[in-house]
Each structure stands twice: as structure tokens, then as C-alpha cells.
């Protein structure tokens, strides 16, 4: 590969690896929305908490990176359960604004705790080697390759989980029709709790990966909002949509950085949101989302 095409592929590959992380976090969004109809705007803060937790285990306590990774996952399961039980369960059936606002309130609390425990400096992991790998001319750091690998692995695990595992089928049933699922003997409460756990786990993983790439700081919270375009692009309640949306938004972000930057500097910061507005105007329910149809 050479010249113009190589330039293009470089951005596509980087975008794909970033996009695979977005897809992972978007999966968390979609899971929670699908089963509980809650849009979790605190997703970004879950990322942040997970990243900080893992970072402090690795650096402050000197644990092996993979050991602290595993401990972080256990921690995020507990976090997801706590949040679901204490904050979200009392609000089941309340208007959308309350539910949105409560997750925003949660962002304050989580951010406050993070600053209290870890301060607000940006810190680096420095776990992965810096030198890039050469893939037919496209240069990617180990970090990006690992991120892509981990994300794609997890995404396929989840796809299989929803297709074959008992709990996965329960979750799909609840998402499809809550009362019907309940009358079949599925515990809706347990499904809600499971969705929050899975969402917390995938966001922690996403947080650790993004934290490795960009450093761990309070700004990680914004990644949660950056994933919104991906979620909307794919459709709020479609798992496949979340994966495709994440990848597309990641690629678009890096392509806009590559090609539009000379005209409008730093356009990549906002390009996903411009795409979001366009998608909302043209096809509001995204690629695979269920259209809400109301009849009088």
C-alpha cells in the first residue's frame, strides 16, 4: 500500500480501534436502555471510576496490570449493583426527565468521589510498549491493537451470550415485553440488575482502554457523551446497531481529523455530534432501532 490509500487506511485502522472501544461502551448504553428504558448519562463516569480504580491498583499498589484489571471488573459489578439498587430502582416508572436527571446527578456524585480519592491530575498507565507495529504499512501502537482485540473479543462474547446463554435470553425477553417475560417466571428485577452490572463492566473495560490511550483524568467522563452519537446512529435499542455505530463513529472521527482538519481545526472533537444531528433529522431511530409508533 502506498500514498493516498495508506493515509486513508491509517485513519481507518486507528478509527476502527477507537471505534471498537466506543462500541463496547455503546453496548453498555444499549443494554441498560433496552431492558430498563433508562438512558444512562453517567456511563462516562463509570468509565472514569473503572479507569482510576485499575490505575491506582497498578501504580499505587504495584499489582500486575492483568490482576488489577480483573479486580476492577469485580469492583464494577458491585458498583453497577449498588447504583441500580439505591438510585435507579426507586425511579422505575417515573417520567423520562427524572430518569435522565438522576443519572446526571449520579455523574456529580461519582466525579466527586473520584476527585476525593484520586485527585484531579491526569495520570498515565505506561503499561504497553510505545513503539508501533507495522501492518502492511499502517502503523498502529500495541495499545490500539490490544484495544481492538479485547473489544472485538468481548463484543463477540456478548453476542453469543445474548444468543445462547440463559440469562442473555432472559434479558432479551424482558426487553421485548416486560409483563410477558414476568409471567413466564423471569425475574425482571434480576435482569435489571444484570444489565447494570454488564454495563458497568463494559464501561470499566472501555475506561481502562481509553485511559491507556489518552491518560486517566476527569475528562474521561466525556467519552460517555461521545458514545451517544454511536448509540443513536445504530439505534438506541439494538445491540448490533451499537457495535456498527461505534465503529462508524470512530472511523468518522479519525477521518474527519485527517481530511477536514486543515479547513476547520480540531473538527474531530465535534464531528460525531454533527453526524448525530443529521441522523436525528433524517432517520431518528437509527439504523436498527425500533420505531416508536403511536396510535390514537
Amino acid at each position: 500500500m502506498k500514498g493516498e490509500f495508506l493515509f486513508f487506511m491509517q485513519f481507518v485502522m486507528t478509527g476502527l480501534s477507537m471505534g471498537s472501544i466506543y462500541a463496547l461502551v455503546a453496548l453498555g448504553f444499549v443494554l441498560i436502555y433496552k431492558s430498563t428504558s433508562i438512558l444512562n448519562l453517567a456511563q462516562g463516569e463509570f468509565l472514569m471510576v473503572g479507569a482510576y480504580f485499575c490505575l491506582s491498583l497498578t501504580i499505587d499498589f504495584g499489582l500486575n496490570f492483568f490482576a488489577s484489571f480483573a479486580i476492577t471488573l469485580v469492583f464494577s459489578v458491585v458498583l453497577g449493583l449498588l447504583v441500580e439498587r439505591l438510585v435507579l430502582r426507586p425511579l422505575i416508572g417515573e417520567p423520562i426527565i427524572s430518569v435522565i436527571m438522576v443519572t446526571l446527578g449520579l455523574t456529580y456524585v461519582l466525579r466527586g468521589f473520584v476527585i476525593m480519592v484520586w485527585g484531579n491530575d491526569i495520570r498515565q498507565f505506561n503499561v504497553f510498549p510505545q513503539e508501533p507495529i507495522d501492518l502492511w504499512g499502517v502503523k498502529l501502537t500495541y495499545l490500539y491493537v490490544w484495544s481492538m482485540g479485547i473489544s472485538f473479543f468481548l463484543l463477540s462474547v456478548f453476542v453469543l451470550f445474548f444468543k445462547y446463554a440463559r440469562t442473555g435470553i432472559f434479558m432479551r425477553a424482558v426487553a421485548d415485553h416486560q409483563t410477558a417475560a414476568q409471567s413466564m417466571g423471569i425475574s425482571v428485577k434480576r435482569v435489571f440488575a444484570t444489565s447494570w452490572c454488564i454495563a458497568a463492566v463494559v464501561s470499566s473495560i472501555g475506561g481502562i482502554l481509553v485511559g491507556n490511550i489518552a491518560g486517566v483524568g476527569v475528562d474521561l467522563g466525556y467519552v460517555g457523551l461521545k458514545v451517544l452519537p454511536a448509540v443513536i446512529f445504530g439505534g438506541l435499542d439494538s445491540i448490533l446497531g451499537a457495535i456498527i455505530g461505534g465503529l462508524v463513529v470512530g472511523v468518522l472521527e479519525f477521518l474527519s481529523a485527517g481530511y477536514l482538519d486543515p479547513y476547520i481545526p480540531a473538527i474531530n472533537e465535534v464531528f460525531p455530534f454533527i453526524v448525530l444531528v443529521l441522523v436525528l433529522m433524517i432517520k431518528p431511530y437509527g439504523l436498527f432501532g425500533t420505531e416508536e409508533i403511536e396510535r390514537v
Binding site: V87, P90, L91, E94, S98, M101, V102, L104, G105, L106, T107, Y108, V109, L110, R111, G112, F113, V114, I115, M116, G119, N120
Partner: peptide, 21 residues
């Protein structure tokens, strides 16, 4: 000092959640 900076965030967050519930 960072503790007390974060108290503000936490109190506001808890207030919002408290009112909503």
C-alpha cells in the same frame, strides 16, 4: 484540599438524586 473540592460535587449530586426520589 481536594477532599473539600469534591464535597461540593457530591453534595450537589446527592441533592439532585434526593429531590428526584
Amino acid at each position: 484540599i481536594t477532599w473539600f473540592v469534591s464535597i461540593r460535587e457530591i453534595v450537589f449530586g446527592v441533592t439532585i438524586i434526593w429531590f428526584l426520589i
